[in-house]
Design a protein around this nucleic acid. Structure first.
Lengths: 239, 239
DNA sequence: GCGAACTGGGTACAGTGTTCGCAATATTCG
DNA sequence: CGAATATTGCGAACACTGTACCCAGTTCGC
């Protein structure tokens, strides 16, 4: 009989031997600290161990594979949302959910690409799921309708945030001005703007105003969110 | 004067020495083949070189870092869409775009997590961008409005597909029945369903019908997509 | 023909996740 | 109280990874 593959089903530690020096939360917190400061690629088992002042392979007493650490990290970050409450009404509730998710993602830019898709089953994540479901309290909706609405909303949020973070990284990795960006954009410099092969793209590159504005992504997110909520509204009760 | 950091701006090869044995497309195609068959983690420089029957470090004649290979892979896959045309009208056009993107992603499950966010500037990707922009032909829309609409749409598609693929992988990695899934779901087996701490989640786990249906994700995608399009419709011309 | 530019590829290095084994330690049982 | 047993910390070792460096061989422009 081997251990359960899901970390949350394994007891954190036995009752027999010496007390462990650290906890899973210590490991998670250390990993989050490293990822926030130096990026997700800096998170290695050796680096975490160094941060905790312990031996590298000692980590495998708390975790059975590196993926478990990532799972712990995801749930650790969701813990930051503990204590928040949702406003009344499904629309304000969903809006709040979307903003909270985006803020959390921007605070920990490594998070979305980490958990993208895969659901986390840690206690904080379960709590968060429970909270999001509470946005529909009192509407007596079909379970499937709720899941569909939440799925659509969080798909948009995840997708938007990934795009936003991708832009941030691209911009940071090669601090370019708008002109340089336009210059190097294409296949072969002139051939994109001049060749006439991409007339619409050329026009967009010339006319687009939004890339200049600092709050561009804020506005894009808000606008997109309202449209998604509009779309959901047609299939949900008035309230 | 060093080489340009963006691969598409570097000439594929010089004019002076011996003709290269392979091309960038060969490298890209080999990498795509490996990723399709064995997953993205199997794509290593040594593995690609073996697939091509060449020396490992010879690849660095075609590419200056592994990230370039990933960029090539992304553009290679977008080439599959060459030759498709969009139906008339913005709504059918956007719908077709969404379906094409999803189908491509499902055909190459490693793609979304690879390019998630970062824009690809290869020729095929530029062509695809041009095509998506053509969905708004004849509406004389503001550039920023077009970008906002396209951004919202593709955020939803990306987010949905990532979730769908995450589910697929989770299901495959531990072929569980619905009951087993429910059993092992929570923090500590009984404590999630029984503790009363997650009443809404408990209800969802019991009632949810969708996880059983084979075409569940198809229907979720279509439903979500229509809602997003509904939301966009409110801010776009009738046609 | 000669030199410059270019390609193929072997070697080497620093890093990675993870397995195994062993000494030290705490708890439980006889 | 021992003795058996479970558990922890951790060093050594292994099979990988990306890639910098070097050099020999090839081909083009002059």
């Amino acid at each position: 009989m081997q251990d359960h593959p899901v970390i949350w089903m394994r007891p954190e530690h036995g009752t027999r031997g010496p007390k462990p020096t650290h906890s899973r939360r210590d490991v998670a917190a250390a990993a989050v600290r490293i990822a926030d400061a130096e990026g997700i690629d800096a998170v290695s088992m050796r680096r975490i161990a160094a941060e905790l002042g312990t031996g590298t392979t000692s980590l495998y007493r708390y975790v059975s594979k590196k993926d478990d650490v990532l799972e712990l990290m995801g749930d650790e970050v969701m813990g930051e949302l503990r204590g928040t409450a949702l406003p009344a009404g499904w629309r304000p509730g969903l809006r709040a959910i979307a903003f909270l998710l985006r803020e959390t993602a921007l605070r920990h830019p490594w998070l979305p690409s980490l958990t993208s898709g895969r659901a986390n089953h840690g206690p904080n994540s379960l709590w968060w799921t429970e909270l999001t479901l509470s946005a529909f309290d009192g509407l007596d909706l079909d379970t499937d309708e709720m899941l569909a609405a939440l799925g659509t909303l969080s798909a948009f949020v995840l997708g938007h945030v990934l795009g936003e973070l991708g832009d941030q990284e691209a911009a940071r990795r090669s601090g370019l001005t708008h002109e340089q960006w336009m210059e190097q954009q294409g296949e072969y410099g002139p051939s994109i703007m001049g060749s006439g092969r991409y007339p619409r793209l050329t026009r967009v590159m010339i006319e687009a105003e939004t890339p200049h504005a600092a709050d561009r992504q804020d506005r894009l997110f808000e606008a997109g969110l309202e449209r998604v909520l509009d779309g959901l509204a047609a299939h949900l009760p008035r309230n």
